[in-house]
Write a protein that binds this DNA or RNA. Structure first.
Length: 99
DNA sequence: TGTATGACGTCAG
DNA sequence: CCTGACGCCATAC
């Protein structure tokens, strides 16, 4: 996998504001690889600590990593019992509208 | 070279 | 709301 892709993914994720969230697919699209949502997921798994990986979730609005619930709730993001984000559409941050 | 496996996405049922 | 089937693409074996 291209190092450039990884770095670009990290850079975009670092732009997600506290209390907001985005999706794997949106990030992938933003860096020019529309069909690489899975690779974004992998990148999140090995990202440095300064990357807010907990703000990246699936397009269905649910957490792929349930353990991130705490970190999200610290940012006042409400996580429901089915691991879905409350007001997902309202909290969604689209990288395409920021670059 | 082929198969299995992911922090995924979309669409039916 | 949940599940399964596909499509997708890099990696591991």
């Amino acid at each position: 996998m291209e190092e450039l892709f990884i770095q670009q993914v990290y850079q975009v994720v670092r732009l997600i504001p506290e209390g907001k969230i985005s999706t794997y697919g949106a990030i992938a699209k933003a860096v020019g690889y529309p069909n690489h949502s899975r690779q974004v997921g992998h990148a999140m798994g090995v990202c440095p600590k300064d990357v807010p990986a907990h703000r990246v979730i699936s397009s269905s609005g649910k957490l792929s990593v349930p353990s991130f619930r705490e970190r999200l709730e610290k940012e006042n993001v409400v996580v429901q019992d089915n691991w879905k984000i409350k007001d997902f559409k309202k909290l969604f941050w689209d990288p395409l509208n920021e670059i």
